[in-house]
């Protein structure tokens, strides 16, 4: 991928962060930090020609299926979908309000959203079913499921992981947003997920670990995802920073699920502006 394209997408990811922050500040709620750790992933998928979709035909049968299992990151997906043209951007102004089309957790009544999520541990199994249907009916769509890392503490994920490899679902790609944090603090200080790569490998998956804020690395990890000679499902462990872009909330416990208010809001907006204009795109 050309450097100019990477820079363009990086700028877009930061634009999405800014729109997400504005939307959450305006609503007084929304999971800002969970959204910010996966900004580059969503931007690459939707704005970087990875996913096949038609925003004017959300149910297009040949579309790739994207399932946001970490449904609390809905704010940035809503921003991403609005920018992709799935629905009018002014819907974003209604987030969590009386006239809202959507709220904190993800709703599949919104064009472009496949499933209502927010109950962690649900998305990978749904994705396995969607993928299995493609196998049965010889459909060419690919299924992506974006998981939170603390979400992997839910045992149902591992039931689904076993199932996916047992049925050779090589048309399924899971992405783990490995921001390292749950609500209370670091996952490794609470219930350990490491060694995560080994866990997935032992469950029969191919594993790639990348810097989840590097669009270049995300592209490299997904460049041959439709190569079905690979007999296994693929998981991309995207190492990220929770709250990436707002320095004082990065990797900070107990700001999960919050939107900044008052002076905090002004401060964090300033931090994000500074981050967005830093010019260190790679």
């Amino acid at each position: 991928m050309e450097k100019e394209q990477i820079i363009k997408l990086q700028r877009k990811a930061n634009d999405f962060r800014e729109e997400t922050l504005d939307m959450c500040i305006d609503a007084g709620t929304g999971h800002v930090t969970s959204s910010f750790s996966c900004a580059e992933i969503l931007t690459s998928l939707y704005s970087g020609n990875i996913l096949k979709y038609k925003s004017d035909e959300p149910k297009w049968d040949k579309r790739d299926r994207f399932i946001l299992s970490k449904g609390q990151a809905s704010p940035i997906l809503y921003v991403t979908l609005a920018n992709a043209g799935f629905f009018p951007k002014d819907w974003l102004n209604t987030f969590c309000k009386k006239e809202a089309k959507f709220g904190v957790h993800l709703q599949n009544t919104v064009p472009g959203v496949e499933y209502s999520t927010g109950s962690l541990g649900h998305g990978l199994g749904l994705g396995a079913g969607v993928t299995l249907r493609a196998k049965i009916d010889k459909k060419n769509y690919h299924t992506f499921v974006l998981l939170g890392d603390a979400e992997l503490q839910e045992g149902s994920n591992w039931e689904s992981a076993m199932f996916a490899s047992s049925y050779n679902l090589n048309n399924l790609t899971a992405i783990v947003d490995r921001n390292g944090y749950g609500v209370l603090g670091a996952t490794e200080d609470i219930v350990k997920l490491n060694p995560l790569e080994k866990k997935f490998r032992s469950f029969g998956w191919d594993v790639k670990t990348i810097d989840g804020h590097s669009i270049k690395e995300f592209y490299e990890a997904t460049n041959n995802f439709r190569d079905y000679k690979r007999g296994k499902p693929l998981v991309i462990i995207a190492e990220t920073v929770k709250g990436k872009g707002i320095k004082s909330w990065e990797n900070k416990a107990l700001v999960h699920g919050m939107a900044p208010k008052g002076e905090d809001a002004i401060k964090l907006k300033g931090e994000l502006k500074k981050y967005s204009s830093r010019g260190e795109y790679e």
Partner: peptide, 26 residues
């Protein structure tokens, strides 16, 4: 392999997989 599958002893996953299949028209 076409109309019959087993999830093993994993009812949660069975219902989740069923959700994926059924929403796709099965």
């Amino acid at each position: 392999g076409r109309q019959y599958f087993s999830t093993g002893i994993a009812e949660q996953n069975m219902i989740a997989v069923a959700g994926g299949l059924a929403k796709e028209g099965k």
